[in-house]
Design a protein around this nucleic acid. Structure first.
Length: 561
RNA sequence: AGGGGCAUGGUGCAACGGCAGCACAGCGGACUUUGAAUCCGUUGAUCCUGGUUCGAAUCCAAGUGCCCCUGCCA
């Protein structure tokens, strides 16, 4: 069975197949990924990444990384670097690192060409006037009084714009198309505006900057891009994309629009993400609660899982809202295969084995992947009379179906011994300070010599050998599935989950975890997947981030009651 | 209201005139030294109305709903 025979093609591939049948691009496929360096890449961009790089790879072509940097006041090299890092992390290789600003001179010449053809003119309408002249959705606009200047005058004025003779906002270069068009984008769109601003790459060389519409298609054309994929909101811009290319009579790529990725329990617009950062709802763009790729990397999401998720979501033109649980499924699926198991106690309570010699210590070899009998790697785990277990793993008055430790009940300490709880130490308020138990020496390793079974198996850490750590547990930033669906007058920031970060101090970890490095995934058994925090951990002062909890059907069942 | 786009289980995606399928979620069970994983089973959908056709999710017509567009943002 070949993989190909069972995977259907998405609509973009069907378009390309058609191009290949008709020979439109001579069988070539070349794509580009065009981020604006004004923020961090998020999971939504990853969809574009997978489409742009995936399509090119599938058809034997290449992909350029091209920063869409035509607006100097919004863009910064900080973002240029962050974007590059994210792309590499995901495992994509671009053919060239390019910038729309590389083409400023060529774009200028193209504008001159359109002026000479009588297809562009210098306008002096103010921003407000231009809005009035543009008309409305239902009524056409009217021509600017400057629309019929001579070609010579336009040429001279445009050159003087470039030389810096005019103040910001006083002049624009506009395409002369059709002020009555039902498509507002065709009502003499602005091609160039005056902006005396320093650009992150060209510095102060320019004081006029091209608009997106005038830059994107021609940049595609210059690079020989065949298929220019973008999100649905650019559909209305395609006639303009085509118009510039046709009037300029240059190589004409095909723009294809797909629906962007939306996900439950988060927001995806850069504006909103920036707001969360600036107003302090999160620490930064890489706060693990953010849907940015850098945040996911920090939280321990494997790039393979993210790509598998995007593949599973598919490509179409439907406005879609993907459940964040689908992403989590792929993350767990990947981590389950790659994260070595370790024991860690997040909310410790002391467990004292009364009949275990006080001065005795022993060690158990434990596999990194106990569910895989072929696994040969592992570590030694020390065991002694005083241990820590999870508070949740002991219940003085157990509820029905609870089969962890409770008075007079026997459970297995994972990989070690069977123990039976016998008593508790309590303070004046009745709070349990420690649990006492006895162990059965004939159950060493976790199996009883007489073959008897226990219902529960709990994890533990030897108290004198434990290392301390801080653990950060994150929850969704928004409890609402659709935080952007708001009642009139409410802000999405009003709905930020105030309890989305829980900091646990004094967690007790098995000693092997002292070696943990950021970026290494671990499964803390029965707790979830964790990763040393690349930002807060210092040698000897580890901080772990919970990437994701394990699926917990017990907790779910309890919550339903 | 004008223009553009989209409608298939709870969610996302297939089926391209011929048995509506896959993934996630859900539900039930088996197994278990992780209440995880794994395994087995299972509920559930073609926006509406009419037409063409032996046969329509698919083609045609009329409707309905949702999204995008009035930046010198991208």
């Amino acid at each position: 069975m070949t993989e190909e025979s069972f995977t259907s093609k998405n609509f973009i591939e069907e378009i390309i197949d058609e191009h290949n049948r008709t020979g439109r691009f001579g069988g070539k496929v070349k794509t580009r990924f065009p981020p604006e360096p004004n923020g961090y890449l998020h999971i939504g961009h990853c969809k574009a990444l997978v489409i742009d790089f995936g399509i090119a790879e599938k058809y034997g072509g290449t992909t350029n990384l091209r920063y869409d940097d035509t607006n100097p006041v919004k863009e910064d090299t900080e973002y240029v670097d962050a974007i590059k890092e994210d792309i590499h992390w995901l495992g994509f290789d671009y053919a060239n690192e390019l910038y729309a600003s590389d083409y400023f001179e060529a774009l200028y010449e193209m504008a001159v060409k359109l002026i000479k053809k009588g297809k562009a003119y210098v306008d002096e309408l103010t921003a407000e006037e231009m809005r009035e002249y543009r008309g409305t959705l239902t009524e056409g606009g009217k021509n600017s009084p400057w629309r019929e200047r001579s070609i010579e005058e336009n040429l001279e004025l445009f050159e003087r714009m470039r030389r810096g003779e005019f103040a910001d906002g006083t002049k624009t270069l506009r395409a002369k198309i059709d002020m009555a068009s039902p498509n507002i984008n065709m009502r003499d769109p602005v091609m160039y505006r005056v902006m005396h601003a320093t650009h992150h790459r060209t510095g102060d060389k320019w004081c006029i900057y091209p608009m997106y519409d005038f830059a994107h298609g021609q940049s595609d054309s210059i690079e020989g891009i065949t298929h220019s994929m973008c999100s649905l909101e650019y559909e209305n811009h395609r006639p303009l994309y085509d118009w510039f290319l046709d009037e300029l009579e240059i190589f004409h790529p095909q723009q294809i629009e797909f629906s962007r990725l939306n996900m439950t329990h988060t927001v995806m617009s850069k504006r909103k993400l920036r707001l969360l950062v600036e107003q302090g709802y999160v620490d930064s763009w890489i706060d693990p609660r953010m849907p940015t790729l850098a945040a996911m990397r920090r939280a321990g999401y494997p790039p393979k899982a993210i790509r598998a998720f995007i593949e599973a979501v598919g490509v179409a033109k439907n406005e879609s809202f993907v459940d964040v649980e689908l992403l989590e499924h792929f993350v767990r699926d990947q981590l389950n295969q790659t994260a070595p198991r370790r024991m860690a106690i997040l909310r410790p309570i002391k467990l004292v084995i009364d009949n275990y010699p006080a001065d005795q210590t022993e060690e158990f070899w434990v596999s990194d992947f106990p569910q895989n009998p072929e696994c040969t790697t592992g570590r030694m785990v020390p065991f002694s009379r005083e241990l820590y277990i999870e508070q949740d793993d002991f219940m003085e008055n157990p509820v029905p179906k609870y089969f962890r430790l409770s008075p007079e009940r026997e459970v297995r300490l994972m990989n070690a011994y069977f123990v039976t709880a016998v008593s508790m130490d309590k303070d004046a308020e009745g709070k349990i300070l420690a649990v006492h138990c006895t162990y059965d020496p004939d159950t060493r390793g976790g199996n009883a010599a007489d073959g008897r079974k226990v219902k529960g198996t709990i994890h533990w850490v030897s108290a004198p050998h434990a290392i301390n750590a801080e653990v950060h547990l994150y929850d969704y930033l928004f409890k609402d599935e659709h935080p952007e669906d708001l009642p009139e007058g409410e802000l999405f920031t009003d709905h930020v989950n105030k309890n989305s970060l829980e900091v646990l101090v004094g967690c007790k970890l098995e000693p092997a975890l002292a070696e943990a490095k950021p970026g290494q995934p671990w499964q803390f058994v029965r707790n979830g997947y964790f990763n040393a925090d690349s930002f807060n951990s210092k040698p000897g002062e580890l901080v772990f981030i919970r990437t994701l909890s394990l699926v917990d059907s017990w907790a779910k069942q309890q919550a339903q009651k």
